[in-house]
Design a protein around this nucleic acid. Structure first.
Lengths: 190, 190
DNA sequence: CCTACCGATCGGTAGG
DNA sequence: CCTACCGATCGGTAGG
């Protein structure tokens, strides 16, 4: 239990540094210093630098997957589902900004069996959102535009919140969600 | 002249590898191999690995700056200016996908006087787009939403084209532009 | 443009 | 969790 929380501390600190300078540019010695131990001691808690990245990327990925299931099963219009999706992304970025950022930017550095898996998981997530968009277009709720364009415009808009949004900025999370919904959902609606 | 084009070749190859694996994870030896010379020989054409990154980032930045001036000076409505901006971003990403990608993702690895400068240049660019949005809201052409939200949603949507768009995909550059304009400009319009 | 090489730093291990 | 240390690799230089 004490060991578990030590590992979690390491991963939490790693996410902060990885976000700032990127996975490759971060050394284990720097991470160790932030944690307050020697570099060699990190290896009593984690197997490798690689493992840290894996834990971050897949933990974020699984969180998104659990949300999308909830959204699919809800009894809502397609517009409402999108609004719910936006809310979920905003919330996750505010709760775990570092992990989300690392998963988005540094997954390329995963080593090979895991990198392929990560891409597949992400592709699966995208397909499920694409489904919502396609259905919304079929029922006439949304404009007819290319589904990939709609999908990636939506995801990109949400993804980059982590780059510029800081809570206690001039805008609250609630306003952020509301404005994004106005812009994006109304942009799609007929 | 021959020397100049050799340097350009090195930078062009570097952009390809940097995009694939990131600046930090790319070694000069790998770059040299792609260029077809020994690592030490790279230094007859460039001063440092750092210089390559600088050239890429600032060359992209200056290209954006020249476009935005053109857009500001055009005698167009604010919606038309946005459509023009979208067109410009799409075109640049199709013409120089690797450089644009590296500038967007690896500018963090610039060393210190240059990193600060890069951030300032980018901030200046963002401010000029924010101006177009603000004016469009004041004249009632656009919905009233938080300008930063509108700005970053717009820029993010354009920025991430480079991650998934491949010409000769199922969609042409013209369709891409048209659909993005439909989604984003109409999302902003009242 | 190459051979030969440098000091620094990397991720990680042995052994306690 | 530390000391001591390893082999590998890094960006880059000297000298031709």
């Amino acid at each position: 239990m004490a060991k578990q929380s030590r590992k979690e501390l390491i991963i939490r600190e790693a996410a902060i540094i990885f976000k700032q300078k990127g996975y490759s540019a971060t050394s284990m010695r720097e991470l160790a210093e932030k944690v307050g131990i020697e570099a060699a001691s990190l290896y009593n808690h984690i197997r490798s630098k690689d493992e840290i990245l894996e834990e971050i990327c897949f933990s974020v990925a699984h969180e998104y997957l659990s949300f999308i299931t909830e959204i699919e099963e809800a009894n809502q219009s397609h517009s409402e589902k999108l609004a719910h999706l936006i809310e979920t992304h905003v919330k996750l970025m505010i709760e775990r900004p570092n992990e989300v950022s690392v998963a988005n930017n540094d997954w390329k550095n995963l080593s090979e069996p895991k990198k392929k898996l990560y891409k597949e998981v992400r592709k699966g997530y995208e397909n499920r959102i694409a489904n919502i968009l396609t259905k919304g277009m079929q029922t006439g709720e949304f404009k007819q535009i290319n589904v990939s364009v709609a999908l990636f415009t939506l995801l990109s808009s949400l993804r980059w919140i982590e780059l510029w949004y800081k809570p206690n900025r001039e805008i609250s999370p609630e306003e952020l969600q509301a404005d994004l919904t106005t812009f994006l959902v109304n942009g799609l609606k007929k």
